[in-house]
Design a protein around this nucleic acid. Structure first.
Length: 371
DNA sequence: GCGCACTTTCCTGTTT
DNA sequence: CAAACAGGAAAGTGCG
């Protein structure tokens, strides 16, 4: 089980880097992709100086690799102010990147965009990244350990087997994008843009919630593995003890005992990315969604679940709900019909279609957000 | 505290 | 027959 959990956590973590809108900082700062040059200029001209008092910068304490676009912007603003740099000379259109993208920039690139400040940014960034532990190595270690020690039947708990090409690819991508890996930082290699797409406000019926903050969703959840190891008999008591029940309709007792282990870790998954956005973001990253979903008709927004349970598990991981199933996920999907976020595709199993109230999946939009 | 949005969970029945 | 679909109902959290 732990092995599966860790692998899923890798995915969770990976995908979480794509969801800049989940970042609490975005509640006040719109995604950079949605900003015009004027907005960026405004952001840079009135930089957040968060270091007064006990206030912390949005980006501080978090790995640059995982910064959202807004955090990148904050950090740049901070650096501009700190170095008394003339922000008007900065090519604002090129500030639209998240932490991962920023970390992939070579010094020359930074110099190109930020002028003399580029060198400062590069060295500051390097300092920041160096101050964090090698996270991926930690994950890899866990994976290796788990694969050595765990042989328990996974049942349908984990769709991601050890050594799954998808898992490997995810890790590989992470490795390539990670500044913690020598050779990746500053290599300036063209990226597939995997981490450059942030979930933006949709401007649709649910846009009022587009700024929902799911908090930092970087949940490597190391403690979770511990949770599975102790106190299991008190599972139900534990839930009551916290005075909060699990989200949604309470499960029947007969099932609860079976899923005691899982519910223990499910305190409450903060609201963040919506399901349809999660689905969309898997779809628009063909390099990542291999085997999970595919476009049936990209122009029309028709897509199909290839590994429905795997996607459900991934969604569950994201929401810290390991009992998520495709059945439940699909119920949520069906609610989207009414809101026209999805349209019905009759007669075709596992096939859905984005509706007029969804956005960000069209090729034009995606390209726009990547540039 | 209330109402709404957005799920999550369960369930029953239907379709593929 | 199993899996997927459909949709009602109830319940949870977060937010305004």
């Amino acid at each position: 089980m732990a092995a599966t959990c860790e692998i899923s956590n890798v995915f969770s973590n990976y995908f979480s880097t794509m969801y800049s809108s989940e970042d609490p900082t975005l509640a006040s700062v719109p995604p950079a992709a949605a900003l015009g040059a004027d907005d960026l200029a405004l952001a840079l001209s009135s930089p957040q100086m968060p270091l007064e008092g006990t206030e912390k910068a949005s980006w501080s304490g978090e790995q640059p690799q995982l910064w959202s676009k807004a955090q990148v912007l904050d950090w740049i603003s901070y650096q501009v102010e700190k170095h008394k740099y003339d922000a008007s000379t900065i090519d604002l259109s090129r500030c639209d990147m998240d932490g991962a993208a920023l970390c992939r920039c070579a010094p020359e690139e930074l110099r190109l965009v930020f002028g003399p400040l580029g060198d400062q940014l590069y060295s500051q960034l390097w300092d920041l990244t160096s101050s964090f532990p090698d996270e991926l190595s930690w994950i890899m270690e866990l994976l290796e350990k788990d694969s050595m020690t765990l042989q328990e039947p996974l049942g349908d708990q984990g769709p991601f087997e050890q050594g799954s090409p998808f898992a490997q690819e995810m890790l590989e991508d992470y490795r390539q994008a990670s500044p913690f890996y020598p050779g990746s930082f500053g290599a300036g290699a063209p990226s597939p843009g995997s981490s450059e797409v942030s979930t933006t406000g949709t401007g649709t019926s649910q846009s009022s919630h587009a700024s929902d903050s799911g908090g930092s969703d970087v949940d490597l959840d190391a403690p979770d593995t511990k949770l599975f190891g102790d106190g299991l008999p008190d599972c139900k008591k534990g839930d009551l003890k916290h005075g909060k029940r699990k989200r949604g309709r309470p499960r029947k007792l007969s099932k609860e005992s079976r899923e005691c282990v899982e519910s223990k870790k499910n305190k409450h998954a903060p609201r963040g990315t919506h399901l349809w956005e999660f689905i969309r973001d898997i779809l628009i990253h063909p390099e990542l969604n291999e085997g999970l979903m595919k476009w049936e008709n990209r122009q029309e927004g028709v897509f199909k679940f290839l590994r429905s349970e795997a996607v459900a598990q991934l969604w569950g991981q994201k929401k810290k709900n390991s009992s998520m199933t495709y059945e439940k996920l699909s119920r949520a999907m069906r609610y989207y019909y009414k809101r026209e976020i999805l349209e019905r595709v009759d007669g075709r199993r596992l096939v859905y279609k984005f509706g007029k109230n969804s956005s960000g999946w069209k090729e034009g939009e995606v390209a726009g957000r990547r540039n």
